[in-house]
Design a protein around this nucleic acid. Structure first.
Lengths: 154, 154
DNA sequence: CTCATTGCAAAGGATTTGCACTAAT
DNA sequence: ATTAGTGCAAATCCTTTGCAATGAG
């Protein structure tokens, strides 16, 4: 699903649920759904401010809530002390590799992992709802450069 | 390594580094190192209070810092909004299954996982430092009982 | 005696909430 | 007109820090 149709889906979700379609919600949706990064609430706020369409912090969090509930956005916690959000893509379950230097996040999928975690949960008498795998390391860029360049999250 | 010798190792670490061995540090070490759970700072504070040896919050965090630096304690973040700590066991790298109802944590090891994450990191031009896998699900107890019983974290 | 630790309270960052005000339907 | 959303500031939660008092070596 591309960015434009994701936004349309979100607006449709709002209408379907009798939730007002406000300028703020559209602006936030654009930032989150059109980003190929894993953005934090702060990233969103900063980006909207830069675009000259500043939105209150509370509204950003409240809108992220709605977007997560709509299923169009997925919440992530990489143990950084804050949450990140990414557009839900068609891929059902994917994992993350995160660079401990610049914070860059790369995604990958592995079907074996899905099966493995399901089995492991069973072995311990758990019914698995989901799993989260994060691989930490240093990316090629950060190993090469002397860390002069550190990516922004937008 | 058992609980008593883990405590002894910690005290040795303090002496080796010319750090004062205080009653508070010993009390905190006992709670953390002798627990088979993954305790939070709050769990520790509550437990010490219950034992009649209350210790200030700041001291608990500061001591946890020292214990992590000593390598005898490992810090975990399960995305709950706070950190948990567990004694570092001999096993090098292990994963966690956490019950989304009662918070119970079960550990397991899988060598394949270690190899897999190493390879996956390589494929994306990352040098892996470590990985974190958390499987979320509902444990047998919480599926059976109607959630009357919810484990404490100590 | 000297220097690190302790405890308390204040400060911090991320997130949530109360409430008067504004805007969508 | 209703009803919900918005922004601001205050409040929360977990964690850290400043600082005077305390204790270990």
């Amino acid at each position: 699903m591309d960015c434009a149709s994701a936004i349309e889906s979100f607006l449709a979700y709002l209408r379907d649920h009798n939730l007002p379609v406000t300028a703020q919600r559209q602006a936030i949706a654009e930032v989150v759904l059109c980003s190929d990064r894993h953005v934090s609430a702060d990233d969103i706020e900063r980006e909207l401010w830069a675009r000259g369409a500043a939105v209150g912090t509370a509204t950003i969090y409240r809108t992220l809530d709605v977007m997560v509930r709509s299923g169009l956005v997925v919440e992530r916690d990489f143990g950084e002390g804050f949450r990140r959000f990414e557009p839900a893509r068609d891929e059902p379950n994917h994992e993350h590799v995160i660079c401990t230097v610049c914070g860059r996040v790369v995604e990958f999928r592995d079907e074996r992992l899905d099966r493995m975690t399901m089995l492991i949960a069973e072995q311990h008498d758990f019914v698995r709802s989901r799993h989260k795998l994060v691989i930490e390391g240093v990316c090629g860029v950060c190993r090469g450069t002397r860390n002069e360049e550190r990516g922004s999250a937008i």
